[in-house]
Design a protein around this nucleic acid. Structure first.
Length: 195
DNA sequence: GGTAGGATGGGCT
DNA sequence: GCCCATCCTACCC
C-alpha cells in the first residue's frame, strides 16, 4: 500500500525512523529502506535549506511527500523525501536500500558492483541502481512510478542512531538511523549513540 | 582488513 | 573561488 501524504506531514525525526523498513519503488526496481538521515530546518547548518529558499532548495520548503533530488560532488544524484508541513524545511535523505525487486536490472545499471551489497549500499549507489535522477526533483511520491509503500517483508528490527555522514557542520547531532545488523547499511561510522 | 586521493559540476558568497 | 549530504581505485598492511 502506498504511503499517504499524512505519513510525511509529521516531525522529521519521527518520519526518518518510520521510513526504515518501507519499500522504495521505481518502475520495475524496488528496495527496502535500511538507512536514513534527518535534515532539519531552522538551525541545522548541515541542511541545504540553511541557505534559505533558492532555486535548488525551493522544493524542501514545499508540501510533504515530494522528492528532493540534488547532485552531490558533481557526480551522484541523491534522493530525499520532503517531510513536515509546508513552509518548514524538513527532509529525509535515503542513504541505503536492501534490493527487493529487479536485481538483474540493477546489476546492468551498476556493472562495477562487486556484490549485491554494492548495488544499493550508499545514497549515490541506490539512485543509480533505481535510475532516480534530478529529473525526479519535485515529483509526488504518494502516486506514480516513483513511490514508497508499506512492506510486510520487513519483519521486526531494531534501530541504531549515529551522527550523520559526510558533513562538516552539526557533526554530532544524532540524526542518522539504520536497521541494526542489516548488510546493506553503508559501513562508515558504525558506532551507535542511541537506539 | 584499511585508507588516501582524484574525479567532476553546480550552488552560493 | 570555495565548498561540498560520494564513489571508486590504488595501494598498503
Amino acid at each position: 500500500m502506498i504511503l499517504k501524504r499524512a505519513f510525511y506531514d509529521r516531525d522529521t525525526v519521527q518520519v526518518s525512523r518510520e521510513l526504515l523498513g518501507k519499500l522504495l519503488v521505481h518502475g520495475d526496481t524496488s528496495g527496502m529502506i535500511v538507512e536514513t538521515e534527518a535534515y532539519l530546518g531552522g538551525d541545522d547548518l548541515a541542511a541545504h535549506s540553511a541557505a534559505g529558499i533558492t532555486p535548488r532548495t525551493r522544493v524542501i520548503f514545499g508540501p510533504p511527500g515530494h522528492a528532493y533530488v540534488y547532485l552531490s560532488y558533481g557526480m551522484h544524484d541523491c534522493l530525499n523525501i520532503v517531510v513536515d508541513h509546508e513552509g518548514s524545511a524538513g527532509c529525509v535523505l535515503i542513504r541505503a536500500l536492501q534490493p527487493v525487486g529487479g536485481l538483474e536490472i540493477m546489476r546492468t545499471r551498476r556493472p562495477k558492483a562487486k556484490s549485491d551489497r554494492d548495488l544499493t549500499s550508499g545514497p549515490g549507489k541506490l539512485t543509480r541502481a533505481l535510475a532516480i535522477t534530478r529529473e525526479h526533483n519535485g515529483i509526488d511520491v504518494t502516486r506514480g512510478s516513483l513511490r514508497i509503500e508499506s512492506f510486510q517483508g520487513a519483519g521486526d528490527f531494531q534501530i541504531d542512531v549515529t551522527p550523520r555522514i559526510g558533513i562538516s557542520k552539526a557533526i554530532d547531532w544524532p540524526l542518522r538511523f539504520l536497521i541494526r545488523g542489516n548488510r546493506w547499511v553503508s559501513q562508515t561510522r558504525l558506532t551507535p549513540v542511541a537506539r
